[in-house]
Amino acid sequence: MRKTSNGMGWLFTSPYILFGIIFFVIPIVWSFFLAFTDWNLISPEFNFVGIDNFIEAITSQSVQSAFVNTYKFLIIYVPIVMALSLTVAMVVNGLPKFKGFFLIGFFLPYLSSGVVTSLIVNGILSYNGPLNTFLREKLSFNIDWLGTPIAAVLIVSIMIAWKFAGYYGLILFSGLSGIEKEIYEAAAIDGASRWQTFWKITIPMLYPALYTVLILAIGVSFGIFTEVYQLTGGGPDFATNTWQMEIFTNAFTNLQAGYSSAIALIAAVVTFVSIYIVRKLIELWGRRNGWE
């Protein structure tokens, strides 16, 4: 009987196992193999180069810039998207009706194409566009938005925050909906101000949803590509270069399969370690607020 149950269990999970093997296990093993070779996938011959690809990646200026820039994006993008998504959630939660309608409206940017958004931003920031013409002619303010490192990072961060704010707002909204009204009523009886209610009740009670959103947002910081590829090409002076840009350029433009695999593996380790550390920090904060 037990034998039959096990067999059926394996059988039922076989589609997922097969999917996992084909799309996760084989590519990861293949990446490990490639990372230790100088193979370009075209030549019939290749050499095992040990850890040369990893050393080249670690000492490369562009890979180093991708490493640093990811944290720059994280520091700028995560607070912006958290603030925006929380605002969306609280505003919609406070509406008397049509909550679903507004939530869908805020969610729509998540479905928008990064390419199209980049083209629109490109038009808005154009030297001869209305914004810059106004700034130049009325305020004598002339700036090369995407050619100035900090402005370029800020613009890309805002674009991505705009895209994800509605999606994260949806998660936070469901978290807000789950907070018992009685807790707020008790706080009101105790004379708590709105500010105190927000920090002492809403934020701690929202912990599970905030935890999810924070981890998702940090994950996004490590996967930035389309906006940078379309708008800045990683410039100016590597200021917006990212892990995904490095992997794409080396894999698909320079056609260096081994080297790009090494970068991808380094990026995976950096991402995993970073998210693990942040997760532990959030969990520590959660435990201090009574969440085990």
Binding site: N122, G123, L125, S126, Y127, N128, G129, N132, I143, D144, W145, L146, G147
Partner: peptide, 14 residues
């Protein structure tokens, strides 16, 4: 030389 984002600079005479 202008390297800022600019829409169709030659066509518009920028």
């Amino acid at each position: 030389v202008l390297t800022a984002q600019v829409t169709d600079p030659f066509e518009t005479g920028v």
